[in-house]
Design a binder for these strands. Structure first.
Lengths: 165, 165
DNA sequence: GAAAAATTGATAATCATTCTCAATTGCGAG
DNA sequence: CTCGCAATTGAGAATGATTATCAATTTTTC
């Protein structure tokens, strides 16, 4: 069954309605190739004139996640990323701390060991996050660049020597 | 070298000073057995009369993390958790979605495969997060309890049938 | 088509964390 | 010990992504 059909089924089984906004959001996501943020979508709609209120978008994203059609990637700080999961199997992510690029990886062996660990501790696994953060091939080659889109913006920790006081 | 010594060394090498607040915070953390939040510490100090400003605590935690003496666990939502890392080796976490308990696990095999995956993609790994979320042994036994300390508090998604309109 | 139920959007609220900046403290040099 | 500069602190404001409110609107049902 296609994505729209699955969403419709999910909605019906929860006594929810297929509205214009929900349809538009799903369609927009279907047309996206990679990862996106809530803000990305908001911008898309704003530019196309067909504005969708933030509250509505967030609500719909939550339902899509619950329906298993979209996956949310919680970043350590800043906005969450989302990615369509239509007909894809589970995978985890490497995140470049310089350019923000997200690289997917999947490894059955890790998943298997992970399940075994849970069994051993009698832990009922419902979901997991496995994020590898560092520098992607391109960014570790160049010295220091492409920092703009993903500045760390840590706490007020000015390095000594350039204190303006 | 002990924790205080290591912190002193870290501070010195960064032209930072060992102040009363920093000493107090480190000591307090040393006396804690498990995981804690910034708020836990703030409360401790408030109760003991020796108040420390939130900004100062957050700044010091950041330095302790940078010094490798403390580890921060970024939760999907809500406050971050911290844990002392004095003389401990790396481990990851299972988080109970019902009672909030954090169970540690470590698995060299997973780490090894993880490193191999990075090598294959030419990704320079700097840090990682591997969180398994689900129900701990105790919570999966009982039907539904201990939900108070860790309520999910999701978005405005009222189940149909109890809409007050 | 009317009533019932769910949805939307504008707006305010959350809330952990970070920023600002003036007042204070730590510490090496003299 | 005392200066003086750089680092630190604290009070309070700011941030910013997300969530809550609630009246107005749309969908579905009868």
């Amino acid at each position: 069954m296609d994505a729209a059909g699955r969403f419709a089924r999910y909605l019906a089984s929860h006594r929810l309605k297929m509205t214009r906004s929900r349809r538009a959001i799903l369609e927009e996501i279907l047309s996206i190739r990679g990862h996106f943020t809530a803000d990305d979508l908001l911008d898309h709609f704003r530019r196309r004139g067909r504005e969708v209120a933030p509250a509505t978008l967030y609500r719909t994203l939550a339902r899509l996640v619950e329906a298993g059609l979209v996956h949310r990637i919680d970043m350590a700080k800043g906005q969450a990323r989302y990615e369509p999961m239509f007909g894809r199997h589970h995978h985890d992510h490497m995140i470049c701390l310089r350019c923000g690029k997200i690289i997917e990886f999947e490894n059955r062996e890790i998943e298997r060991i992970q399940a075994a660990v849970c069994r051993r501790k009698k832990f009922r696994l419902l979901e997991h996050t496995h994020q590898l953060r560092g520098h992607c091939a391109g960014c570790s080659r160049t010295g220091a660049a492409a920092r703009s889109a993903f500045a760390s913006g840590g706490i007020d920790v000015r390095s000594p020597g350039r204190n303006p006081s």
